[in-house]
Amino acid sequence: MAIQVPGKRFGKRLQRSRVFGKGGVGGKRPVNADLLITPLVDMFVIIVLFLIANFSATGEVLMMSKQIRLPEAVNVREIEMVPVVMVSNEQVLVSGTVIGRVDELSREDYLNIPALEEKLRDMKKQYEQLHALANDESGTFKGDVNIQADRDVHFKIIKRVMYTCTTAGYNNINFATMTAASTRGEQAPGKGRL
């Protein structure tokens, strides 16, 4: 085998290539190739516009869980950062704290859920104390609560959760839903409204 100059050595097929095979048939071609910036900038602009259009200043209000599949609704309002009661098919949680199991709650006949009420009262007290310390008169307690429940949960559990929220002072109950596209092409009345 003949001694060759060190460097790149391409196969037989690539030796005839205009790109790799040192020109092949013709003479030497310039090595420098200009990168086309225009489509790159176009693509960047489109991506930025798309992402800005979908940007949500509210952020991630609800912690999404695989155990909770939210129902879909069209005529929804923008969700706010308020306490969330999570109701899955197995358990009821508030701020990550397990309040009780759904099968046990289903067996009980009375409406109130004492553990949930206690937890919500604590949260209300904490909220009021924090705003009193900060002398924030605008941040009065409004009693908003989000219920993030699985679509298969029966109303018996929802009823108890709602009753407990009202008893604890959370009168403005909101059902968290996935925003579905309107089939009639109408703008949802409350969409984008705070």
Partner: peptide, 24 residues
């Protein structure tokens, strides 16, 4: 552009969640 895209992708919320206000 690259910085803006990275920031927007990192802070993007892909699930659109709304609320239905009801009263007890």
């Amino acid at each position: 552009m690259a910085v803006t895209i990275s920031f927007l992708i990192m802070t993007a919320v892909w699930t659109q969640i709304g609320r239905l206000q009801v009263s007890n």
